[in-house]
């Protein structure tokens, strides 16, 4: 597994892509999908929903358990990965890429400074 160096990571095992026009993409890490096992359902937020840092923004369900995805940043959902409705297993096969969950328009870009970089996250997972 490789965690892109330009991404940020949370202790709850979410990743955040670099900011483009005030918007970031959020997903769960490869470590998280591996711990969950076969993902069979993703409960996505709706476009236009707003969340504060620490809120449950989505639920990723494996055969055995439902796990909340907590957003490490505050903002408004501007796009969701609807392809996960038909192919939730993409979260397993490509957690950092095609398995993204949603895009968020940031309220406060400084929240990103509180997150880990790839090296710190890999150390955190040990």
């Amino acid at each position: 597994m490789s965690n892109p160096v330009e991404y940020k990571y949370s202790e709850e095992h979410e990743w955040i892509s670099p900011v483009v026009d005030g918007i970031v993409t959020l997903g769960i890490t490869d470590h998280a999908q591996s711990e969950l096992g076969d993902v069979v359902y993703v409960d996505l937020p709706s476009v236009g929903d707003t969340f504060s840092k620490g809120d449950s923004i989505a639920v990723v369900e494996s055969v055995k358990a439902a796990s909340d995805v907590y957003t490490p940043v505050s903002g408004e959902v501007v796009e969701v990965n609807e392809a996960l409705d038909a192919e939730p297993g993409t979260v397993n096969s490509d957690a950092i890429g095609a398995g993204w969950i949603c895009k968020i328009k940031l309220d406060d870009p400084s929240e990103l400074d509180e997150l880990m970089d790839a090296a710190a996250y890999e150390e955190f997972c040990k």
């Binding site: 096992g37 076969d38 494996s62 055969v63 055995k64």
Partner: peptide, 19 residues
């Protein structure tokens, strides 16, 4: 992956539950 079940430390899956 080991989980507690009925007081025992048991395997919940090896390769994946669906497999």
């Amino acid at each position: 992956k080991m989980v507690p079940f009925a007081g025992w430390n048991m395997p919940v899956q090896y390769t994946g539950i669906i497999d």
